[in-house]
Amino acid sequence: MPANTRRASAADESMPYRYDDGVDLGVTGFSFDGGEAGSPDYDDRVLPLHEYGPWEVVEIDVSVTLDPSVARVFPDDEGPPFPAEPVVVVDCEETQTRYAVSVGDDHPPVELETFETTVELERDLFRGTVRLTPRLVRTEPCASGLPYAPNEGMRVAGGGGWTVRVDDPPEDHDGFPFVYRDFSQESMPPVELAHSLSRHPEEKMMINDQHEGIVDVMQSGLTSGFRPNLKRFLKADFGVMLWVQLVLWTGTTVAETGTTEFDWQAGVVQELATHEFGDHLFDSDADYDTVERELGRRVDDPSELRDFVGDLFEAAQLYTEYGRQLERFVDREAP
C-alpha cells in the first residue's frame, strides 16, 4: 500500500451483501496546465488547488490499490481475476457534476493490485469542493446469490476519498488583517466599500473586498433584521481592534520620535483629544499636545504599558459601544 494512503478496516454493515473497505485511493501528485506541480496535503487528504495561481486544467495522478481482503466479496470460483472494475467517482455538488473515471485499461476482470491513472479537472466545470472516491464495481451478475452482490453495477468495495479544494473555503479565512492605505491612493477601494467605524462620519475605515460576505453585511441598507444588527455589532468589533492598533502604533511613533509621523496618526491624537474616547485615558481637559506627549510616555514606559493597554481596550469598547451592540445583537437574534 502506498505510504500516502489510509483506509478504514471496518466492513460496511449497511450493505445487504458482502462489502469490503479495502480500496485505497492515493494521490501521487498534481500539475496545472501541463506545467507547475503542486503538493498534496497527505495528512488531511486534501488537494489545496486554491492556494495556487490561476489555472485552467489540473491533472491529478492517482493510484487505486485493491487490498487482498477484497477477495472475500467474490465467490471462490470467480477469480482472481475478478469480474469487477475499479473507478474513481468525481463529485462536485456546487456545479451539479458527477461521473466516474475508469482506473487502468484492462478491466474487467481485475487482479488485486495497484492501478494508476490521471484525473483531469477543468476549472470552468467546478467550484468549491470536489470529492474523489474510489469504488470497485461488479461487471457481471453473480450466480452464487447472497452473501455476494448479485447484480452487475453493484459496488462491492470502497475506501476513503480525497478532497479537492478548487476554491478557498470560507471557513478557512484567517482573520481580518488590517491594511493601512493613504486615502489619496488611486487603488483605494471604491467609496461603497468604506464603512465608518467611528461614531463620526468623517473618519472612515475600510473593510476590504476579500471577504464578500462581510462586505455584503456592511453594505446592508436596512435598519432592522439580522444583517443590520450584525453590521452594528461588527462595526463595534472591528472598531475596537482597529482603534487599539492605531493608538498603539501612534504611541510607538511618538515615543520614538517625539511626534506623529503620518496624517492618520495626527488624526488619532486629534480623536483622543477632542472626543470622549480620550477621556478614559487622559485628563478630559487635555489638549492635543498634552495627549500626544502623554501617549508617547505611557507607551514608552514598560511599567505603564500593561495598564495602558487595559485602559485602551476599555476606552475603545466604550467609544464603539461594543457592549451595547453585542447585547442588542444577542437580544434580537437569539433563537
Binding site: P16, V87, R98, V137, N151, R155
Partner: peptide, 13 residues
Amino acid sequence: LSTIQLETRSRTE
C-alpha cells in the same frame, strides 16, 4: 442507489 454505483451505468442501462 444504495447498492448500484450509478456513475458506472450507461444511459441505456
